[in-house]
Design a protein around this nucleic acid. Structure first.
Lengths: 215, 215
DNA sequence: GCCTGTGAAGCTATTCACAGCT
DNA sequence: AGCTGTGAATAGCTTCACAGGC
C-alpha cells in the first residue's frame, strides 16, 4: 500500500485522466511543464507528485505516459477492483449514477439503495436499486467498503451509521451536514452549498481586488 | 470587504447552517468547544475562525449565536443578495437546481441555460431555462457574476469562456477537467470522480492502518 | 540548453499553551 | 473552575533553486 498525502491523491486522479487522453492521441512522453499546464499546476508540483509515484523521468523525453498511468493505478486502484454502494436515489443520486456509468472500470457503483418503494427493484443507469434493509446483506456479499451518501440532511447520519455497521471504511457525503464517525472511517464531504458560497465570496473579492489594482 | 482565508470561508458556511439550527431550538449562546463538536473540528479552530469575524465571546456564556450568524453574513453575503446562473440542465444540473430551491435567500439560481431546445423555455424547480445564446444578455440584465458549470467535459472550457466573456467572476465547475481562465476569475472545481477515487484510496489505507494497529 | 530530482526555504493552516477574565 | 483571546510552536504543502545528466 503506497502512502501518498491527500492533496497528491486528488492530483494523481486528475493526472491520470489527462494522461489517458494523451495516450489516445499517441503521445508517449510528457514533460513536467506540459502536464502542469494541462492540470493547471506548476512543474515543480508535478515533479514532486511524480516522485511520490517512484517514476523516473528522462531529461530528453520527460516521463513515459504509460508508466505514469500504471504507477498511478498502483496507488489509486484496488488490485481486484472495487465495488461502491450508493444510498439515496433522488435527483442527486441519479445524477451520480449516470455520471459514473462505464467510466472507471476499477471503481464501479454496483448497488443503489433507497427507502422509496417506487424506486426499489428498478434498474437506473444500469444499477439495481435495493431497499435499505438489504444494505448489510448486499455490502457483505459484494465486499463493499466505499459508500456514497446522497440522502437528505436529516437522514445522513443514520445512513452513515448503517453503512458503517455494514462495513464501510470510506464515505463520500453529499449531505450538507458533518457526520459523526469512528476514527477508522474516512469521510470526504462534498457540500455543494459550501462550494457555492465560497465561489460567491471569492468572486466578489477578486472583483474588489482587480478594481483596486486597476486591472 | 472582509478578507478571510479560503478554508475559513468554507467553515463559516458550515457554522452558519449549524447556528441557524441552534437558534431554532432557542439556544442563544454557544461555547467554542460545542460548536467544534457540531462542526467536526477543534475548539481552537473555532476560536480562530471567530477571531476572523471580529466577534468577542464571553467566558461565562460563550458566543452569541445571532451575532455569529450576522457577522458570518457580513463576510459571506453580498449586501444586496446575489443571483447565480447555471449552465447545463442535464441530470446534474437538475439535481443542483432542486438542491438549492428556496435554501439561501441571499444566493439564488435565477437563470439556467442549455443548448437542448427540448429544455429551453421550460421551468425546472422554479427556474427558467434559456438558450445558451442568451447568456450574455441575461447575465448582464441580472448582474450575474457567479456561474455554475454542469456541462459535459468536452463543453466545459467553451462554456467557461462564454461565461467569462459575459462577466463571470466566479465559476463552480462540476466538469472533470481543469479550466483555463484569466487570473481575475475564481474557479472552484467540484470533481466527483476525484472525490470518489480519494475515498476509495483512503478507505483502503485506513483499513490497512487499523489492521497494523490491531484495532 | 533544457530537462529531471531534490534539499532547503517559504508559506499557510492548525494546534498548543497559557495569560486574563468572569 | 472553566472559558476566551492569542503569541508561539508545529505540521503540512508548495515553490525555489540548483546540481547532475543527456
Amino acid at each position: 500500500m503506497v502512502w501518498v498525502p491527500e492533496k497528491t491523491v486528488a492530483r494523481l486522479s486528475l493526472y491520470r485522466r489527462l494522461l489517458y487522453e494523451l495516450l489516445q492521441e499517441n503521445q508517449l512522453y510528457i514533460f513536467s511543464h506540459d502536464l502542469a499546464r494541462l492540470a493547471g499546476g506548476t512543474a515543480a508540483q508535478v515533479r514532486r507528485d511524480v516522485m511520490a509515484l517512484g517514476v523516473i523521468g528522462n531529461p530528453n523525453r520527460g516521463y513515459a505516459v504509460q508508466e505514469l498511468i500504471d504507477r498511478i493505478g498502483d496507488v489509486l486502484d484496488a488490485p481486484e477492483g472495487e465495488s461502491v454502494a450508493l444510498i439515496g436515489v433522488g435527483n442527486l443520486g441519479r445524477a451520480i449514477l449516470s455520471y459514473f456509468t462505464g467510466r472507471r472500470p476499477k471503481l464501479v457503483i454496483t448497488a443503489a439503495f433507497d427507502n422509496d418503494m417506487a424506486k426499489v427493484n428498478r434498474v437506473i443507469h444500469g444499477c439495481r436499486v435495493y431497499p435499505l434493509e438489504q444494505l448489510e446483506e448486499i455490502m457483505a456479499a459484494q465486499n463493499i467498503r466505499v459508500v456514497i451518501l446522497a440522502v437528505p440532511a436529516n437522514q445522513a447520519q443514520s445512513a452513515a451509521d448503517l453503512a458503517i455497521r455494514a462495513g464501510a471504511r470510506g464515505l463520500l457525503n453529499f449531505a450538507p451536514v458533518p457526520l459523526h464517525t469512528p476514527a477508522h472511517v474516512f469521510v470526504e464531504d462534498n457540500d455543494i452549498t459550501t462550494s457555492l458560497e465560497k465561489v460567491a465570496y471569492f468572486a466578489r473579492r477578486f472583483d474588489a481586488n482587480s478594481f483596486a489594482q486597476g486591472a
